[in-house]
Design a protein around this nucleic acid. Structure first.
Length: 470
RNA sequence: GGAGAGGUAGCGAAGUCCGGCCGUAACGCGCUCGACUCGAAAUCGAGUUAUGGGUCAAACCAUACGUGGGUUCGAAUCCCACCCUCUCCGCCA
């Protein structure tokens, strides 16, 4: 049942392969009073549950410890005490102001003298202004603290300090048995005329690549396969979002304010290039109230992603693994809080499906508390086998963010059986990183003669091409 | 980029010229509960923002009329800056 305005949120009719259509908001109804940088958020808007912070600060303290974070909960508690004291005083003054106001109006209307009240209120007003200023300082500090606190890990997340402590959950597929020394993808791709890093460096700089001919097409084919699979097999609605978004949007999903140096910003504007489609997709429902019957809402998008890779100097300098610009098919799920962990399993399976279709071996790992991203409550990484590098490399990361992003971006749903609006849970996952998948295809399907066999699943997208050779 | 119109609750919309019982915000729609009905429609009645403070829970108090400032004892209303939407014009893939 639609709760309110039925035009605001709508389900698309589903269309069979190769086209599909699913739900998206035809028209967004924004809650004007819930906009991020308005006074609402200044009044102590929680990134974590404020009540939880107040009543059970030890839970947050514990969480921060698990993440090896140095953030001090006591700072928050001290600020909170200050804030409450100030609020009590300010609000008492404002209540007085509101009580006396009509009296002044009444006297003036009757032509009586109100100068005593005016004088008194002048003092009250001055005092209020003073306290308000103090209050906003405290609130700003508290907000800053809140914004820098990472999400609380789910209880099922393995404890650990670094990637060493991640746990492998399962392996899939058999590593190809190669009776020759496997090459790395950049060698194979360059030799076949498909990849050119030198020219890309001329055009832009390091960490860029150019694909030509078969390689460009192969990349497109992979993206197509991914989109078609996610939309037709797994119920995701394909979206083409903006590739640049504003600061507010970046804050909603947690990239800002903490990680600005990882982003590319368009100078002279408020625009940032998206580091992942998670940002625009999740924020589609920012400030919205979703009807419970609409859940889960599942979006996927094929977009370029831009990352400055600050802090990874010297890492993966060769090849396609770590680029400033790469393509990714991203999945986002707005889930009912009770079902988000099921949804995480589903989403991970949807990402795995792509590698299964390509018949490329991979493993799934559960990230430990110390290795998880800022907004994640639980994360699975899918690591694909790369014979050239002789190791598993991350090709997908699927996270349940719980209500962390929903709080920042103000995404709620209206339960059917209750009046109280609740935060949704948001999930995001790569399904998959296209560039790294291209690497995986090249390395796993390479032949002794330097050619690449096209995986069966990609042949329809490659115009029937069977093999790429010199 | 130029000109004009607009931004008020789930939606639509009044109020803005002339500042003060107009913000649990008129009026309409929707939604929830109830009455009527065999049932439904229609009709009638009641209810229906969020956040913060406060409380065992309430009562109660404060804040929010696109955003941010200013004037004032007091601002949806007056002043300044900015953002967004719509219409027309220009430019453009």
């Amino acid at each position: 049942m639609t709760l309110s305005a039925p035009c605001c949120h709508r389900r698309w009719p589903s269309i069979p392969f190769p086209f599909s259509a699913f739900p998206f908001p035809a028209k967004l109804s924004i809650h004007k009073n819930l906009v991020y940088y308005g006074k609402r958020i200044e009044r102590g808007v929680p990134m974590l549950d404020l009540k939880l912070m107040q009543k059970n600060p030890e839970i947050v303290r514990e969480s921060l410890k698990k993440r090896s974070s140095k953030i001090d909960v006591q700072e928050f508690t001290d600020l909170d005490v200050k804030r409450k004291t100030l609020i009590a005083e300010v609000e008492a003054l404002k209540a007085e102001k509101n009580a006396v106001g009509p009296e002044i109006a009444k006297r003036k209307k009757a032509g009586e003298d109100a100068s005593d009240l005016l004088k008194k209120m002048g003092e009250v007003s001055a005092r209020t202004k003073e306290l308000d200023a103090k209050l906003s300082t405290v609130e700003a500090a508290q907000k800053e603290w809140m914004m820098s606190v990472p999400n609380i890990p789910h209880e099922s997340v393995p404890l650990g300090a670094s990637e060493e402590d991640n746990s492998v959950l399962r392996y899939w597929g058999d590593k190809p048995e190669l009776d020759f020394e496997p090459k790395e993808h950049w060698e194979i791709g360059t030799a076949l005329g498909g990849l050119d890093f030198e020219c890309a460096a001329k055009l832009a700089g390091s960490r860029f690549a150019i694909s030509y001919g078969w390689c460009a097409r192969l990349e497109r084919a992979l993206a197509q396969l991914m989109l078609d699979t996610q939309t037709t097999m797994h119920g995701y609605t394909e979206v083409v979002p903006p590739f640049m978004v504003n600061r507010k949007t970046m804050t909603g999903t947690g990239q800002l304010p903490k990680f600005e140096e990882d982003l590319f910003k368009v100078e002279g504007t408020d625009y940032f290039l998206i580091p992942t489609a998670e940002v625009p997709l999740t924020n589609i429902y920012a400030g919205e109230i979703i009807d419970e019957a609409m859940l889960p809402i599942k979006f996927c998008a094929h977009t370029p992603c831009f990352r400055s890779e600050a802090g990874s100097y010297g890492k993966d300098t060769k090849g396609l693994i770590r680029q400033h610009q790469f393509h990714k098919v991203e999945m986002v799920n707005f889930s009912h809080p009770d079902k988000s962990y099921e949804a995480l399993e589903e989403m991970t399976a949807a990402a795995e499906k792509i590698l299964q279709l390509l018949n490329i071996p991979y493993r799934v790992i559960a990230l430990c508390t110390g290795d998880m991203g800022f907004g994640a409550a639980k994360t699975y990484d899918i690591e694909v086998w790369l014979p050239g590098q002789n190791l598993y490399r991350e090709i997908s990361s699927c996270s349940n963010c719980g209500d962390f992003q929903a709080r920042r971006a103000n995404i709620k749903f209206q339960p059917t059986d209750s009046k109280k609006k609740q935060y949704v849970h948001t999930l995001n996952g790569s399904g998959l990183a296209v560039g790294r998948c291209l690497v995986a295809v090249m390395e796993n399907y390479q032949q002794a003669d330097g050619s690449i066999v096209i995986p069966d699943a990609l042949k329809p997208y490659m115009g029937g091409l069977e093999v790429v050779k010199a």
